[in-house]
């Protein structure tokens, strides 16, 4: 495409069509190999459509039905697709979608709250993503964000959760996935986001973290996720 052919405005209709088409590419092996994160895909598509003022481009009834079908048989957490194991990350995506669609009444909220609360290790305050036991501050964010949307933060030990997040704060002001793990922009999003939700931003070393974050920008304007790495649009 030559410079003269470049669009000068956002081609909203084409973006909307593209997002709608993602659910029909079932001839591609890739479609099936990403099955485990189908629910995330719905969230990304839906939020993009919402930003484009086209949320109705995906039929609400279908979306809600699909989300409900991803809830595990025991009525607790949600998996990435029908029949997949429940996981905190997909549970957050499910709740986010249902809140966007104003359809929380389609599920048993108490059961979801019970599931999320059961993922907290009451001794350390940390959260495991699923019954497999992987611990990561990403899952702290998933749990806190999810319970906040459901207005049920009372179901977990918030001060212990904060304690764990603070153990993951590093000498450079950033946060990592577990105590001692390197500061990483994505983990910082999760930790600071979780702290903000529970009104604990005063625990962040704002000046030190502020420096770390703005130091992510390179001379060409792009942002990297960790010091001395290359820029990548996913961090913008």
């Amino acid at each position: 495409m030559s410079t003269s052919e470049k669009p000068t405005h956002l081609l909203v209709d084409l973006h909307v069509k593209y997002i709608q088409s993602l659910d029909t590419k079932k001839d591609d092996l890739e479609y099936w190999l990403t099955e485990h994160l189908r629910l995330s895909g719905v969230y990304w598509g839906l939020t993009a459509l919402d930003l484009l003022n086209n949320i109705d481009a995906l039929n609400k009834e279908d979306v809600v039905k699909y989300v409900v079908s991803c809830q595990h048989d025991n009525g607790s957490g949600f998996g990435g697709h029908v029949g997949h194991d429940p996981h905190l990350m997909y549970t957050l995506y499910a709740i986010q979608i249902l809140v966007i669609e104003d359809a929380l009444d389609a599920i048993n909220v108490d059961k979801v709250v019970e599931y999320v609360a059961s993922r907290q290790d009451r001794a350390t305050g940390a959260f495991t993503g699923d019954e497999w036991g992987e611990i990561d501050t990403r899952f702290s964010y998933c749990a806190i964000s999810c319970l906040s949307l459901l207005k049920r933060l009372d179901a977990v030990d918030v001060s212990k959760a904060v304690e764990f997040l603070m153990l993951c704060k590093n000498f450079d002001g950033g946060f990592g996935s577990s105590p001692g793990a390197e500061s990483h922009a994505a983990q910082i999003f999760c930790c600071v986001g979780a702290l903000a939700i529970v009104n604990s931003l005063h625990l962040v070393d704002a000046d030190l973290l502020g420096w770390w974050l703005c130091e992510r920008q390179l001379k060409n304007g792009g942002l990297n996720g960790r010091p001395e790495k290359l820029e990548d649009v996913r961090y913008n």
Binding site: T24, K26, D28, L29, W32, L33, D62, S69, C70, V82
Partner: peptide
């Protein structure tokens, strides 16, 4: 495969993977 309610298109991907799943 149960592709959730209202599947929009038929499936035609690698048969070995389909079978395994």
């Amino acid at each position: 495969q149960d592709d959730g309610p209202d599947p929009l298109a038929p499936i035609a991907y690698d048969t070995e993977y389909t079978k395994a799943m």
